[in-house]
């Protein structure tokens, strides 16, 4: 299978480059790369539910917040090591995702979107108002992973986190489950008539996706060292959505490309104020209408046109 080989080569090359890259980067650029990795995790896992099963969740940032605050509070109040905390935070996000999924995925369609929108608002309100526990908008100081703070260590940690997330997503979409994801997205009724347990498939996708968001949030929180209700905010949610849509929903590479390009771009335009999320949202809307497969889709179309030209070239020359 040359396709699989090609993917493996690209992945291996990317990993080697990314492991060598930090030696040429300053502190600021290291930080930007770390944030990029966080968004790769967020966008890739959101793509699993939105891009592959067609269920739009607005609770992805909220689940990242749950992962971040759960891990932070466990290490602060119970003295749990952040390493264990992140794992527990992931599990808590998974359990909450599962419960929420069971409640609203039976109804299908728009209900998941509405419920997660409400859920997301509740999570943020709770975090803001439970000042005693979460320090509200002041932010909660959390311990880091390493005794000695170094951006380089975090760079590799988040890189590994992103690779784990991508590996889980890849495994999911290339397994039996992944085939069912796409069947459900294409036509629930036809899927059910062929034996697909549609509700179970949707709940599983949502649970995995939410758990991965919790994982991303946990890692990110212990990197930032100060977590605020910004993490589970709708701003964050729409940024992740924009990254996925602009990069290319329903493709493996799309969210990765979207996360890197939008995060790096927003570093450049941040000086003009915090309007970038709004701009990205608008661009995402336009993309959803005119280029629903995002950057990846556009690239594929250009590749197709080139290949066609090459195929046509001899014929054209022959006629001349």
């Amino acid at each position: 299978m040359s396709q699989t080989k090609k993917i493996c080569c690209v992945a291996a090359l990317a990993i080697v480059l990314l492991s060598l890259l930090p030696w040429s980067l300053g502190v600021y650029k290291l930080h930007v790369m770390i944030v990029c990795f966080f968004y790769v995790m967020m966008a890739a896992s959101w793509n699993l539910i939105a891009g592959y099963t067609g269920q739009v969740s607005f609770g992805h940032a909220a689940f990242a917040g749950i992962g971040a605050y759960a891990s932070a509070l466990l290490s602060l109040k119970a003295g749990v090591s952040p390493w264990i905390g992140v794992i527990l935070g992931t599990l808590i996000a998974a359990v909450l995702g599962f419960c929420l999924g069971v409640i609203c995925l039976k109804m299908g369609g728009i209900y998941l979107s509405l419920t997660t929108l409400g859920f997301s608002a509740i999570i943020q309100i709770v975090i803001i108002n439970e000042y005693e526990i979460t320090r509200g908008t002041m932010g909660l100081q959390v311990p880091g992973f390493f005794a000695e703070y170094s951006k380089l260590s975090y760079y590799y940690l988040l890189l590994i986190g992103a690779l784990i997330t991508l590996a889980v997503v890849y495994a999911a979409i290339h397994s039996r489950l992944g085939v069912n994801f796409r069947a459900v997205q294409n036509d629930e009724r036809a899927a059910a008539s062929l034996g697909v347990n549609v509700v179970r498939v949707r709940v599983l996708a949502f649970t995995i996706s939410s758990a991965l968001a919790g994982f991303a949030g946990g890692l990110y929180g212990h990197y930032l060292l100060l977590i605020t209700p910004e993490i589970p905010s709708l701003d964050q949610q729409f940024l992740v959505l924009s990254m996925t849509v602009i990069g290319g929903m329903g493709s493996f590479a799309g969210p990765i490309i979207g996360a890197f390009s939008l995060e790096i771009l927003s570093e450049y335009i941040r000086v003009y104020g915090e309007y970038h999320v709004l701009v990205f949202g608008l661009v995402a809307l336009v993309a959803a209408r005119f280029a629903p497969r995002g950057i990846v889709g556009i690239a594929q179309d250009i590749g197709m046109v080139k290949r066609l030209r090459r195929l046509m070239a001899p014929a054209v020359r022959g006629r001349a």
Binding site: R176, V179, N180, R182, A183, Q185, N186, D187, A190, A191, L194, G195, V196, N197
Partner: peptide, 17 residues
Amino acid sequence: PFGTMTCLENVVVGIIN
């Protein structure tokens, strides 16, 4: 049909479930 899936994948859905 599952439009974005190949014929093979369409049939695979019926088998694996």
